[in-house]
Simulated scan of single mutants.
Amino acid sequence: MLFNKRKVNIEEIARKHALINAVKFDGKADFKAVIGKVMAEVKANAREVIPVVKGTVEEVNKLTLQEQQEEMERLGIVIEEKEKKEKGLPPLPHAEKGKVVTRFPPEPNGYLHIGHAKAAIVDYEYARMYDGTFILRFDDTNPANESKEFYGEQKEDLKWLGVEWDREYRTSDNLPMHYELAEKLVRDGYAYVCTCSSEETSKNRRAG
């Protein structure tokens, strides 16, 4: 008697999931999808469940889509729609429209890779999200490893990604200003010129 009750329960659950799956996919339920749902819901071994689900799926698939929908309505079966998560970047704390400035600073020493692409797109999208400014700044402070051809290649890669910049410049364009500000910091006592050798600097850094 207990087995018969459990079998009826499995049949009801299998019927429910077979109908739901069929209606979702133009009248054809998928056995693998249905068995997964049923096994997650009933406490029974697979040997007992599989033939019941298989037979139920075959029966449901013989019905027309309209008949499946009518049976679902008659049995009070409702397809629960998953809440759609809004896709996109999380908001920036304290950001204000028109005041956000982002920049992408590639070094012109090679082609852009996937890491560059991710950084460029995130920076670009945040600037657009807040009606801000997106800057392309070539970090050209290591001329021994850089080549003129990569300026153009990197810009072409960004265009291919759909990234458009509002301003473009090179770090070297601002070196006179950087030098002037560094001198001011030294004069005002906020910075000093370190005379340590590279070995001493590394040792001090490791020592904390």
Rank of each mutant, 00 (worst) to 15 (best):
L65R: 05
A191E: 07
L75C: 05
K97W: 06
L75K: 12
T171G: 10
L112R: 01
L158T: 11
G189D: 13
N145M: 14
A120L: 02
R103G: 13
D30A: 09
Q154W: 05
V100H: 02
A119M: 03
W160V: 13
E168G: 08
K82E: 10
V78S: 06
R128V: 11
K99V: 10
E164L: 00
L158A: 12
P106V: 14
A144N: 05
N9M: 04
A182H: 01
G152Y: 06
G110Q: 06
A18E: 03
G189Y: 10
K184G: 06
K43C: 09
D140T: 14
T171D: 06
K37E: 12
A46D: 07
V78P: 05
F3C: 07
K24T: 11
M129A: 08
Y151P: 14
K5Y: 03
R187Y: 03
V8T: 14
R170K: 11
N174I: 12
A144I: 15
Y192I: 07
E146R: 15
W160C: 09
H116C: 06
I135T: 04
M39R: 15
K82V: 07
G98P: 06
I114P: 02
D188N: 09
R205K: 14
D173S: 04
G27H: 12
K184A: 10
A46C: 02
E153I: 15
V23D: 09
E200Y: 01
D26I: 11
S198N: 06
Y169F: 06
V52E: 07
I20G: 08
I20D: 12
N61L: 08
R15D: 05
N9I: 08
I135F: 00
V49W: 00
E48M: 13
Q66N: 14
G36W: 03
H116N: 12
A182E: 05
V53H: 03
E149R: 11
L19E: 07
E164I: 02
P91Y: 01
R205T: 13
E96P: 01
P108C: 03
T64I: 15
Y151N: 14
W160I: 13
S197I: 10
R103C: 08
L63F: 02
E73Y: 04
I135H: 00
Y151L: 10
L158C: 08
C196Y: 09
Q154T: 12
C194P: 00
P106M: 09
E164H: 05
N109I: 11
T201P: 00
T141C: 14
D140A: 13
Y179V: 12
D188W: 03
Y151K: 14
G208W: 00
I13D: 01
L181I: 09
P91A: 09
K82H: 11
K28C: 07
P176K: 10
V78C: 10
A18Y: 02
D123M: 05
K159H: 14
A207G: 12
Y179G: 06
A127W: 01
V186H: 08
M177I: 11
L161R: 09
Y124E: 02
E199V: 14
R167K: 08
K16T: 07
K84R: 10
N142L: 13
E70C: 01
K24N: 11
E156W: 02
Y151V: 15
E58T: 04
I35S: 08
G110R: 08
T102C: 02
T102W: 00
D26K: 15
S147W: 03
K37C: 15
L181C: 04
P105V: 13
H178F: 15
